[in-house]
C-alpha cells in the first residue's frame, strides 16, 4: 500500500531537483556575501517627508552637495517634472557621497550610470545610498521611471575630477 501511494520520482529527476537546489543556494550565498560582507546594499527607509512642502524648506529647498569632512559629501537631490536639481555636481576622485533623493510630485527613478546607484524615487520617501567614486569621468544620472511628457529628457551629470 505504501509503495502504491508514494511519490514516484525518476532518479534523473531527483538529481535535477538536487542540482537546482544547490544552484539556488549558491546564488543565495553569493548575493548575501555581496550584500552583507561587501556592502552592496539596497536602500532602507530613511525618513518620510511631505512632498507638498519638501521643496520649500529644509535641505531639498537648496538641493546640492555639502562637504561633511574632507572627501565625504552629502548630495540632496530633488526630482521634479522633468528635471533633477541640481543638474550638475562636481566631486574629486575618491569622494564618498551619500545621496538623499526625493520627489516633490510624481515617482521618478534615479540611476547613476556605470555605478550601482539605481533607486526608485517616491514622493514622501527619501532614497538614500552611498557611493564612492574611484574613477574620474562624467557620470550621467538619468530618470528611469516614466514621469510624464518630459521624462526622456530628464537627466543630470556628476563630474568626478582627477
Amino acid at each position: 500500500m505504501t509503495s502504491k501511494s508514494s511519490m514516484h520520482i525518476d532518479p534523473y529527476e531527483r538529481n535535477w531537483i538536487i542540482i537546482s537546489i544547490v544552484l539556488l543556494v549558491s546564488f543565495a550565498v553569493a548575493i548575501s556575501v555581496a550584500g552583507f560582507a561587501f556592502g552592496i546594499q539596497v536602500p532602507s527607509p530613511e525618513q518620510r517627508v511631505d512632498p507638498r512642502t519638501v521643496a520649500d524648506s529644509g535641505p531639498w529647498a537648496d538641493p546640492g552637495l555639502r562637504e561633511l569632512s574632507p572627501g565625504k559629501y552629502e548630495a540632496y537631490i530633488l526630482a521634479q517634472t522633468w528635471s533633477f536639481l541640481p543638474r550638475e555636481m562636481t566631486v574629486p576622485i575618491g569622494a564618498e557621497v551619500t545621496f538623499y533623493i526625493t520627489s516633490k510630485d510624481v515617482q521618478h527613478g534615479f540611476k547613476l550610470q556605470e555605478t550601482n546607484l539605481n533607486v526608485q524615487v517616491v514622493p514622501g520617501q527619501v532614497s538614500k545610498l552611498t557611493v564612492t567614486f574611484d574613477r574620474p569621468g562624467d557620470y550621467d544620472y538619468i530618470c528611469t521611471e516614466y514621469c510624464g511628457s518630459g521624462h526622456a529628457a530628464m537627466f543630470g551629470t556628476l563630474h568626478v575630477e582627477p
Binding site: V42, P43, S44, V119, V121, V122, Q125, V126
Partner: peptide, 8 residues
C-alpha cells in the same frame, strides 16, 4: 528592491 520605503 530599490524602493525607499521598504526595509532591506
Amino acid at each position: 528592491y530599490v524602493d525607499p520605503g521598504v526595509p532591506a
